[in-house]
């Protein structure tokens, strides 16, 4: 476990040695801030409108109106864009610079290598998540959203990100070129994002199955603040598949240099 953590620490530090971490964090907080501001503004106008109508009823739900839209907004655009930037270097860079020889000739199992890299990338992702929740925490200062659904939001965001990281890590292990790794990741992620469109025009079993595989379908419940076991299992499977494929890819790498 100690060497896994050593590797994870090295990966996390490597993001901050290079501009990647700063670029990703800056883009993320800028976009996230804009989303947040827009949704809050829309919400406030909505509240004023309801007051003008003379309605004395309860104000619209903050969780539903701001947090949910914020999370779905982040999801569909920002993470799709940024996660490949986090994962592209994981293996591609090691293969290009030859440092993979150090890892593969050290007394480490493949799983320890993969685990270390995955945790390192997850570390940077968790920093992004913390930024998101700083924005959300502001809502508690000026409003009264309910706290419990946030747990579901956080878990959903973590699982969703971890799933994409695992897939991105696998794609990075296929090439020596970081740009190629990022480009393929964007393609694959985008396809997985829009796979649920199939549902709207096909009701065959295949259509429904493919739609079920979409990354976005399974996030809806988390965004609403609901934890559904089948969504948890879905994302965990994505993570396991990503890690498994990376392990296979390392085997192939060792078969021929």
């Amino acid at each position: 476990m100690r060497n896994v953590l050593a590797l994870a620490g090295k990966e996390l530090r490597a993001y901050f040695h290079s501009p990647i971490a700063y670029v990703v964090l800056t883009i993320y907080s800028a976009l996230c801030g804009f989303f947040f501001y827009s949704f809050v503004a829309t919400y406030v106008i909505q509240v004023f409108r309801m007051m003008e109508m003379g309605g004395g009823g309860p104000s619209p739900n903050i969780n539903e109106w701001i947090i949910r839209t914020l999370l779905e907004g982040i999801l569909t655009v920002v993470l799709l864009l940024l996660i490949p930037l986090i994962t592209m270097r994981l293996f591609a860079e090691e293969k290009r610079s030859g440092t993979i020889e150090l890892l593969l000739t050290s007394p480490l199992t493949d799983m320890q290598i993969i685990g270390g890299k995955f945790l390192g990338a997850l570390g940077l992702y968790i920093i992004l998540m913390i930024l998101t929740f700083i924005y959300i925490a502001l809502l508690f200062v000026y409003g009264n959203p309910s706290g419990l659904p946030l747990l579901a939001n956080a878990l959903g965001l973590l699982l969703f990100g971890a799933g994409l990281l695992a897939l991105g890590m696998w794609i990075s292990s296929l090439t020596k070129n970081q740009i190629i790794a990022a480009a393929i990741s964007w393609g694959v992620f985008l396809l997985l994002f829009v796979l649920n469109w199939i549902e709207s025009y096909s009701s065959s079993t295949l259509g429904r199955t493919l739609s079920y595989l979409s990354l976005t379908t399974h996030f809806d419940n988390f965004a609403k603040g609901v934890i559904d076991l089948k969504d948890v299992v879905y994302y965990l499977s994505v993570i396991v598949i990503g890690i498994f494929l990376t392990a296979r890819s390392l085997e192939v790498l060792k078969g021929r240099p």
Binding site: R2, N3, A6, L7, K10, R13, A14, H17, S18, S97, G98, T99, I100, E101, L102, L103, T105, S106, P107, L108
Partner: peptide, 25 residues
């Protein structure tokens, strides 16, 4: 093992790199 091209992380400092190599080994 010292491969033909030394497997060094160019963005790391020497002491940091050696400590990392020590930990994974």
């Amino acid at each position: 093992y010292l491969p033909e091209n030394p497997p060094v992380y160019t963005d790391m400092r020497v002491a940091e790199y050696l400590a990392f190599a020590g930990r994974i080994k």
